[in-house]
Design a binder for these strands. Structure first.
Length: 893
RNA sequence: GCGGACGUGGUGGAACCGGUAGACACACGGGACUUAAAAUCCCGAGACGGCAACGUCGUGCGGGUUCGAGUCCCGCCGUCCGCACCA
């Protein structure tokens, strides 16, 4: 015997070639077979794969291989989310064309993915930056335009006044452009948008049907859509305080000469008697009108606009307001007016861009009121007098009261519940009129806004329309698609290369033939990723989708990706699939939801290291430091200088913190199976996994151990195909039970994506097998052969190369990847006896081994006979005995 | 700021539907093999007290429901993710 160590890197290349030569993972659309579509979120081609990819794709691959062995026709494709900013940034920095940069990255990453041994059908590969992909996206866009699902509207962008360019939110740092350092300004411009709001209620309702999605993702989407029922209500502005409306001088008859009212949306009309101010967005028409004659207000509004467009930034900034001097008249009291403020935290995009503030019952309002000395009048309080005092004290202390209760300080509403007060206010105001219209109307409002898809960048899918001075917006005719990106764009300057290209945008109008210009905005890259899963079902079709293939393969049976996509990518894809249905590109099988099951995996994290003596910190790669000692005494030194290094916190692997481990290093040194196994071991897949050296060597050791176990089986166990003995001794039966239980459990756990538990079960089976090699007994040789084959087959989806190697060593000349999943023998899965815990008053005192089928009375009697129970009872009589069959006996005294 | 999640030994984690907390692995300690090391194999181990049998405590903190709570409820603390132009 004395087999050599298993040389993973070398054997893995061999098996990858075998799979490739045999086209093992090529998939055909075959309606006669049950299908399973396994998809992992496709990567952005950044240049190299990272450990997050390794984890994501390993999980999908295990499931794909398992489902294949269970007889499914498995679709497991891969592609590239290839448009996006980094390519353009790289072009600017190193003078390479985005296309070259991207395709080089794709080639490099594809080689890396191949070295992982993933069971992918590479014949279906798509890259979203390829005209053969985006031509179809342009077709869908034009159909969406025709269906009024795509339209133009004004929207805000981050404008860098120095670079004269639009910035992404991530390019705005502390309100300044990342390159120029200039203060960023909000700028409004005409932009393309998708009418996702046409489906708001459907997107919300259908969440309920997504049973195989994580509850938290559904909840996040629900909150994102943000349905709220409230009141649209109009407040009259006090005479003489309101400014003239902008544009009224030019004689537009629709607009009144002065702003005489302010419309707001509120979900809390019940708190109307607690109103103490109005707040409007800096871009609200009333604010703009007031700013026209108030320089200070104009300056304040400008300051607000310099915050950029990010909601997170706007809402975390210090709450600031400016009293416009305008006064609004309370709807229930003509003598009661409240001041109208322009406030930096009011968003023009939500509701009407105006609110009334009721400080006592809204935390943000109470902070604002406190800062500006506005009244704080509680109008809801707990019914219970004692609790009421504490609640009111808290309000006086600056903490808004948000719970239910009864109305106080509210005239005709006093004593009602807030819900009743809501109805009473709505009813009364619906009946009253202001300028001939009802003062208020019930309204369902959503937080969800239409999806702005315009990007002022080169490396994206061109929006296929032409602007004509006479005809307006003209779609590019289908025969002229794709609208290709020009190859000879320049990237040396900031700004949109399409816009400044000397010839590209100048075309004849497709409708009238006059000189016209192309749209120079390109599409948000989220559009590309909103339908790639549909394209994978027929990647060579000359229409965006092939209905027969789509009907067969959709929906995706298991989608796997990062939690960071919980809202945007997934919501956009859900919308887009509906839009494709409406425009005749999908949905023909009456499937509205693209992803039947979703799994969000955790991140890969690692310790950080930095030079001890430098501030700001200079980060070090894990390969640049050496360690000694352990536990509290663990120390790191920088190898190059011998200077001490600081071991920092464990964080998400990132280039900036340099806490990266290169998958290539692991694969070339330890093998892909080792990396795969480590990714699946220990940490639950939805949680973060900490990458450690110890974990790698543990995985590597296990590979060798399996290899030795197979070797031992070949030397000592029964030969391949030996007939089953008539009888098994206790050792053999125990091993067989262990093997079949493991087989059963591993299958269940893979199906449930609980890979870490499946791994633990494989360890247990290995332990049982190792132990068995020191024993002897009737039929043990046969049982060892059986258990070894089960071990190899059960770990095949996780360590596919090692699996093939072991399968061959066990004497088979077939491919493990093509073997059916073995069937566990039901009789071996249940034991005849069970161990039942015995408690006295809920405290475990003993345990009882008893027949599985023992009657409760029998179990009770046996438990009461136990010495330990008698001792714990201390002579007291049991009051009650609870028997949970096969689990527990609890004696209560 | 708003929304969402997570928290179990020295470490990663397991525990089906409320029923023996700590499976499995790492690290650690002891032993076998070896000239030696590596590798491998065997044994031990939540904490505290005790020679031991055993007892007490124990799932971030504080309450509650229950015969019984890691699991359910309420209130805190801490960490992480998303926030619409990063992908």
């Amino acid at each position: 015997m004395a087999t050599e160590r298993y040389n993973a890197p070398e054997r893995e290349q061999h098996w990858q070639k075998v799979w490739e030569t045999n086209s093992t993972f090529l998939t055909r659309t075959d309606p006669a077979r049950p299908k399973c579509y396994v998809l992992e979120m496709f990567p952005y081609p950044s240049g190299r794969i990272h450990m997050g990819h390794v984890r994501n794709y390993t999980m999908g691959d295990v499931l794909a291989r398992f489902k294949r062995s269970k007889g499914f026709n498995v679709l497991h494709p891969m592609g590239w989310d290839a448009f996006g900013m980094p390519a353009e940034n790289a072009a600017m920095e190193r003078k390479s064309h985005p296309r070259e940069w991207t395709y080089q990255n794709i080639a490099a990453m594809k080689a890396q993915l191949k070295s992982m041994g993933l069971s992918l059908d590479w014949s279906r590969e798509v890259a979203t930056c390829d005209p053969s992909y985006y031509v179809h996206q342009q077709r869908v866009f034009l159909d969406m335009l025709a269906a009024d699902l795509a339209y133009r509207r004004k929207a805000k962008v981050n404008w860098d006044p120095v670079d004269q360019t639009v910035l992404a939110n991530e390019q705005v740092i502390d309100g300044r452009g990342w390159r120029s350092g200039a203060l960023v300004e909000q700028q409004e411009r005409e932009q393309w948008a998708f009418r996702i709001t046409r489906y708001t209620q459907d997107l919300l309702d259908a969440l309920g049907t997504l049973e195989k999605w994580p509850e938290k993702v559904r909840l996040m989407q629900e909150n994102w859509i943000g349905r709220s029922e409230g009141l649209m209500m109009r407040w009259r502005l006090a005479d003489g305080t309101a400014p003239a409306a902008i544009g009224s001088a030019s004689g537009a008859h629709t607009a009144p000469a002065v702003h005489d009212e302010l419309e707001i949306f509120t979900t809390r009309p019940d708190t109307l008697y607690g109103a103490s101010f109005m707040a409007i967005a800096p871009d609200h028409p009333l604010a703009k009108a007031a700013a026209a004659k108030d320089a200070k207000l104009a300056a304040f509004a400008d300051e607000c606009r310099r915050m950029g467009t990010s909601v997170a930034e706007i809402e975390t900034a210090e709450k600031k307001g400016y009293d416009t001097g305008i006064r609004a008249v309370h709807p229930f009291d003509p003598n009661w007016t409240v001041p109208v403020y322009v406030a930096n935290f009011i968003l023009m995009d939500y509701g009407t861009g105006a609110i009334f503030g009721c400080p006592a019952h809204d935390q943000r309002d109470i902070e604002f009121a406190t800062a500006y000395g506005l009244p704080i009048v509680p109008v809801v309080a707990p019914k219970d007098a004692g609790k009421r005092a504490t609640a009111l004290a808290k309000v006086a202390d600056g903490a808004a009261f948000l719970d239910d209760g009864v109305m106080i300080n509210s005239q005709f509403l006093d004593g009602l519940t807030p819900a009743e007060a809501f109805d009473a206010v709505a009813k009364r105001l619906e009946g009253e009129t202001l300028s001939g219209r009802p003062v208020a109307q019930r309204k369902v409002n959503y937080r969800l806004r239409d999806w702005g898809i315009s990007r002022q960048r080169y490396w994206g899918c061109p929006i296929p329309v032409v602007h004509c001075g006479d005809c307006g917006i003209v779609p590019v005719p289908a025969k002229d698609l794709p609208v290709r990106l020009p190859d000879d764009a320049t990237f040396d300057l900031p700004g949109n290369p399409l816009d400044r290209h000397p010839t590209w945008k100048h075309v004849a109008c497709p409708a009238c033939g006059k000189a016209a210009t192309r749209e120079t905005d390109t599409m948000d890259t989220f559009v590309d990723s909103s339908w790639y899963f549909a394209r994978f079902t027929a990647p060579d079709a000359d229409t965006p989708t092939d209905k027969a293939a789509l009907d067969y393969w959709m929906p995706v049976d298991q989608y796997i990706g990062g939690i960071e996509h919980a809202i945007l990518h997934l919501l956009y894809s859900r919308f887009f699939y509906r839009a494709m249905g409406e425009t005749g590109h999908a949905g023909h099988a009456n499937i509205r939801e693209p992803f039947a099951a979703l799994f969000t995996q955790g991140m890969v994290v690692h310790e950080t290291y930095k030079r001890a003596d430098i501030d700001p910190p200079q980060w070090l790669l894990p390969t640049e430091v050496a360690f000694e000692g352990e536990g509290d005494k663990r120390r790191a030194t920088e190898i190059a200088t011998g200077k001490p290094a600081v071991i920092g916190s464990i964080e998400k692997m990132s280039k900036s913190k340099k806490n990266l481990v290169d998958p290539d290093d692991i694969i070339t040194n330890y093998g892909a199976d080792c990396a795969r196994w480590f990714m699946l071991s220990d940490s639950p897949p939805e949680r973060d996994v900490i990458w450690t050296e110890a974990g790698v060597s543990s995985a590597s050791r296990f590979m060798q151990r399996v290899w030795r176990l197979v070797d031992q089986a070949v030397e000592k166990a029964a030969p391949k195909g030996a007939s089953m003995p008539a009888a098994f001794g206790p050792e053999a039966t125990a091993l067989r039970r262990a093997a079949h239980k493991a087989l059963d459990q591993v299958g269940r756990n893979i199906e449930a994506l609980r890979f870490n538990v499946a791994v633990a079960q494989l360890y247990e089976l290995s332990n049982a097998l190792t132990e068995s090699h020191q024993k002897a007994g009737d039929g043990l040789g046969w049982a060892q052969r059986e258990a070894t084959e089960i071990l190899v087959q059960a770990l095949g989806p996780m360590m596919p190369h090692l699996g093939e190697e072991c399968w061959a060593r066990l004497g088979y000349n077939t491919l493990l990847a093509e073997q059916p999943w073995p069937k566990a023998e039901a009789a071996l899965l249940v034991d005849d006896t069970v161990v039942v815990a015995v408690q006295v008053n809920g405290k475990r005192r003993d345990e009882l081994t008893i027949s599985r089928s023992a009657a409760p009375a029998e179990v009770e009697a046996a438990a009461l006979k136990l010495e330990s129970v008698a001792k714990a009872l201390e002579g007291r009589q049991p009051k009650k005995v609870i028997v949970v069959p096969q689990r527990i006996v609890n004696v209560v005294v």
